[in-house]
């Protein structure tokens, strides 16, 4: 068996008095969709933030592709997030001033891709996520489902190796939620990207290959005895 893409072990993290993670662990292989389940306040979002190199754990080890994220400098982690990771959040992630097309092109532009090329690739992803019609609109002018598909396009546009999705359907109705999940997982499988999917909804988690439960900051990795 090949080395896992992303491994986290023994993660501890507290915010002031609040203990968010206690000896949490997780591994993700390439192309795998892993659901992280837990009630609100269980620490699942913190786990995602740690895995993505947004939050540095107090203790523990996170290895992505042979590099330890915990000891990595902030600049290196930023670069990693730009180049190797993609993100989809529940809401508030699109820059309200930019058009949808520009929003999707943003990660490429941050990675110094020229504007024209970046917007061309962004356009292809909008098409792929069936939201071509909103390219010139601002996020405030599109529906929640469209906005979320734009966000997925943005997460995928850099062809990341891991996509971190934090309650990506949290603000959507079931039909739109299902559509976003279908497009997200299909696109991830096609590009070979792994997906870390934080959710509290079983129907969303059902799009995963495997789930990890977080309770009170601890992970329970239940391999189903099939």
């Amino acid at each position: 068996m090949s080395a896992p893409l992303l491994v986290a072990e023994g993660l501890y993290r507290r915010f002031g008095e609040t203990v968010a993670l206690v000896d949490a662990a997780l591994r993700i292989d390439e192309g795998e969709v892993v659901a992280v389940l837990g009630s609100s306040g269980s620490g699942k979002s913190t786990l995602l933030h740690c895995l993505a190199g947004i939050v540095r754990p107090d203790r523990g080890r996170i290895v992505f592709d042979g590099q330890d994220l915990v000891t990595m400098s902030d600049a290196r982690r930023s670069a990693l997030r730009r180049d190797a990771f993609g993100f989809v959040f529940q809401f508030g992630q699109l820059v309200p001033e930019l058009t949808c097309l520009e929003n999707v092109a943003l990660p490429l532009r941050l990675a110094r891709v020229p504007r024209r090329a970046a917007e061309q690739r962004a356009g292809q992803w909008l098409e792929r996520l069936e939201v071509t019609e909103v390219a010139g609109k601002r996020p405030g002018e599109v529906s929640g489902g469209q906005g979320q598909r734009v966000a997925v396009a943005r997460a995928l546009v850099t062809r990341p190796r891991v996509i971190f999705a934090d309650e990506p359907t949290g603000a959507l109705d079931s039909l739109n939620g299902e559509r976003v999940m279908r497009l997200l997982t299909e696109a991830a499988r096609d590009t070979g990207a792994a997906v870390v999917l934080v959710t509290h909804e079983a129907r969303v988690a059902a799009y995963s290959d495997r789930e990890v439960v977080v309770r009170d900051g601890r992970t329970r990795n239940l391999e189903v005895a099939a």
């Binding site: 947004i54 930023s78 670069a79 997030r81 730009r82 959040f89 309200p96 990660p107 941050l110």
Partner: peptide, 16 residues
């Protein structure tokens, strides 16, 4: 603030 935090999360440089 949320948007800013998100932009940093997706790897935006602070200088940007």
């Amino acid at each position: 603030r949320r948007l800013l935090a998100m932009l940093v999360a997706v790897g935006t440089r602070r200088s940007t």
